[in-house]
Design a protein around this nucleic acid. Structure first.
Length: 124
RNA sequence: UCAGUGGAAUGGGCAGUUACGCACGGCCCGACCGUGUGAGGAAAGUCCGGGCUCCGCAGAGCGGGAUAACGGCUAACGGCCGCCGAGGGUGACCUUAAGGGAAAGUGCAACAGAGAGAUACCGCCGGCAUUUUGCCGGUAAGGGUGGAAAGGCGAGGUAAGAGCUCACCGGCGCAGCGGAGACGUUUGCGUCCUGUAAACCCUAUCCGGAGCAACACCGACAGGAGUGGCUUGCUCGGCCCAUACUCCGACGGGUGGCGUGAGCGCGGAAGCAAUUCCGCGCCAAGACAGAUGACUGCCUUCAAUGACAGAACCCGGCUUACAGUUCCACUGACUGU
RNA sequence: GCUGGUGUGGCUCAAUGGCAGAGCAGCUCAUUCGUAAUGAGCAGGUUGUCAGUUCGAUUCUGACCACCAGCU
């Protein structure tokens, strides 16, 4: 699960996106994949690492529901079997249904989104 | 058995797999391993009160704000306990911004009504003119208006009436008696006054300002512009001076503050209680995009996939939200003995 | 986390404690061959919610809800 020198990253070792401008860049120029329980934005970055950001807005509910949405998304993301190849900014946006979703139900959604984005480097 | 009142507790448990924050330890010093520990009764709203920190020290006056029966508790409070008054309930009990002052003063009381603290429309009575009726005077019992109309009701009295007089009831004041006090009173004497202070205001008590994004230290950077500034809203007074102060730009830096505290548990004592004191034991989150998650099985259960809900410097309260379950004390009705 | 502010017709805003109003928008009629403009009329309000003070609350007081702004 460690870095192998070819830009492949364990998902556990991904950095976090903290700055608002990075989120805005992902929203504006990144590729979008939607699902009733999740929205994913993917964009290549020049930071040299892979970074992940999870967003739960006030529309989701109160603090408990927002925390649960973030935890479910993170648990599903960390349970992915593949590794990311390349330097990407990945932003997950929670929706209202995320709160009532199990993390196991979310894993196929994330795999489909990230495979469409080519993050796993399949076939290259 | 049914209906209800008050108070307290709980907010599933066990196991497995896989992840996370912090502390300590280890080594092969790494995105590692081990051990320990890891949200609430409201963590919420931010409505009060304090601790703590800073403002070159908090001084005086004006202004502003808060509270309002009495006695106590407390670090303090607008909180709590006890008690009195008032109101609600058959009752257990509950509510109490309703609880200082309208007899210091000012204002307001629309519409209606004659009149909103000062009167007389319809009435009643007397006198004069006398055809219907008009004028003058007395009166406030009756009608009408209004949320509110000169204490209520009865008797005497009178031209008609009126606390004008008297009995009873009610309010207010003074004295007596009881109580620590608010207050109570089948006691005596005097007296009969509209409501509103969550209108201005008066009285008594209290309050300097800002808040952990405070503040302190270390580092990085690049300087430029303006002006006397700070102390509370104002005045006086006080303080610091160009190494001062304000604004723009920049570092989207780091560390401390940061958890041994008005702390928690058990036992005892004082007190009606809030609370306080003594003894023993314990250390129990501390992040900085923010840690308790995800998934599975079994058990208890009507049901647990299922209440409200996530610490952010820390405490004491208040308020608001809350599926279900359990316990204690008590009340009313019905039935049986 | 802290501080401050605002809720009134569909929209933008008024309103000394005493019948909740104005402009725009909407509807009807007139005008026109028809439309716009113009004129006349009409309807539309739990004054964010719940309590309280008061004879009476958009206004005064408290609690709650929603929204907005500012502070590194």
């Amino acid at each position: 699960m460690a870095a192998d020198g070819n830009g492949a990253y364990s998902l556990r070792r991904a950095g976090t996106i903290t700055d608002n401008c990075d989120f805005r860049r992902a929203y504006a120029r990144g590729k979008v994949y939607t699902n009733p329980a999740l929205v994913t934005y993917v964009r290549k970055n020049r930071a040299g690492i892979c970074r992940v950001g999870i967003t739960a807005s006030k529309k989701i509910g109160n603090a408990v529901q927002r925390n649960r949405a973030r935890r479910v998304i993170r648990a599903a993301f960390l349970a992915l079997p593949e590794n990311v190849r390349g330097h990407y900014d990945i932003v997950f946006v929670a929706r209202t249904r995320t709160v009532r979703t199990k993390s196991t139900e979310l894993i196929p959604v994330i795999r489909k989104h990230l495979r469409s984005a080519g993050v796993f480097g399949d076939g290259t």
